[in-house]
Design a protein around this nucleic acid. Sequence first.
DNA 1: AAAAAAACTAAACAAACGTTTGATTTTTAG
DNA 2: CTAAAAATCAAACGTTTGTTTAGTTTTTTT
Lengths: 214, 214
Amino acid sequence: MQDHRNIEKQDKREHLLEVAERLFAQNGYEAVSIRDLATEAGVNVAMVSYYFQSKDNLFKTLLENRMPKTRAILEELLASDITSWEKLSKVIDMYIDKFFSGRAFHRIIMRELSLQQRPEHVKLIADNMGRNMQIIRAMIEEGQEKGQFRYVDSELTISSIFGTLSTAINNQPLMCILMKEPDPEHVYGEVYRERFRKHIKSMLQAHLLAPGRS
Amino acid sequence: MQDHRNIEKQDKREHLLEVAERLFAQNGYEAVSIRDLATEAGVNVAMVSYYFQSKDNLFKTLLENRMPKTRAILEELLASDITSWEKLSKVIDMYIDKFFSGRAFHRIIMRELSLQQRPEHVKLIADNMGRNMQIIRAMIEEGQEKGQFRYVDSELTISSIFGTLSTAINNQPLMCILMKEPDPEHVYGEVYRERFRKHIKSMLQAHLLAPGRS
DNA sequence: AAAAAAACTAAACAAACGTTTGATTTTTAG
DNA sequence: CTAAAAATCAAACGTTTGTTTAGTTTTTTT
């Protein structure tokens, strides 16, 4: 059941983090016991406390390690020499891949954010995502100032982009029913990614671009 | 701390359900112990098992009791003699109130759906929401057949409506940062509801309505 | 007023939790 | 090769969990 094939010495800590990420994503923070984690990773229960002091600290390490380094990409995009719409378009491409490929990880952080039970986790996540959102807001407002975008509600527009994607990855069973897709994993495959890409872009285009423009 | 003011005899069961709903919404299913619940409701721990057999069954009772009787409203709307856009517009009005006013309850069911840990809960929720979504889909496709709506991706359009709202109520701290609103409760007040209403309708209008129409 | 049913309680249950201990093995350094 | 350091382990710690038991009080029924 477990996959302990050649866990090198110094990789054991890393291996624990990987298994933890998968289990947390599958079952949620509280539902994963240190014993589950240790068994699945093929190490002794005490190793978790040994490496991470506590379960809570293991989770925070996970957050900090994997917390997307997206901001650099976003800032570069904002500063780049393309139209505001092209910037937004690339942002959407990036987030679809990020959310769909890393959906396990995103389920964890969304759950922690929603639960609001561990303040340190909430702060870490909200600050990070919040700053990314501000960059996207700057892109929208740039387009508005240049007369390329209508003066839509930029904050709620961002909220709709994130909402569409995060709801999709968070509610797999509902998506299956809505899409009439029997295979639960298939809804995150390339076909559906393309569909989301097309939908979000076309909706945003209609929403943002002044009538008469392409 | 607790509010036991005049709990009439036969109301004790109901009172337990109310307190449970509030606690589950605030802290999540697993984080609420029977002892927390009993203390907060001012009853003996054994009463929960007495009335509901198990914690799991208490939750299912909560779901069935409060599971929105929205479908009737939706079906009536679908059959009514107004334009497809007016139908959708009323759907949005209804869901904004439903999500914002009952956000505690919706946080619970969204969390259960996302967690996918208790299959019975998932089925109950997904079936219910799925059927509601199919009605909205029928509204959109009706508008398309009548030539009033563009041939957008109806399923993902629904996903965007629900996504915008459910992300808003699920990620309170993030919304505060995005909106630069210092008071966490204020983001669900009337001012913001109106803002969401306006945003969603204007976005959907641009998305759905063929150019040239109002 | 007596009997039956329902409501309620304090105490205990076994199981699972995160964490610690103290000893043992393995790795590293001198 | 030897001694210090790091890594690993089985076992136990004290809590907390959901649930049950067995007895008491209250309400309803006759």
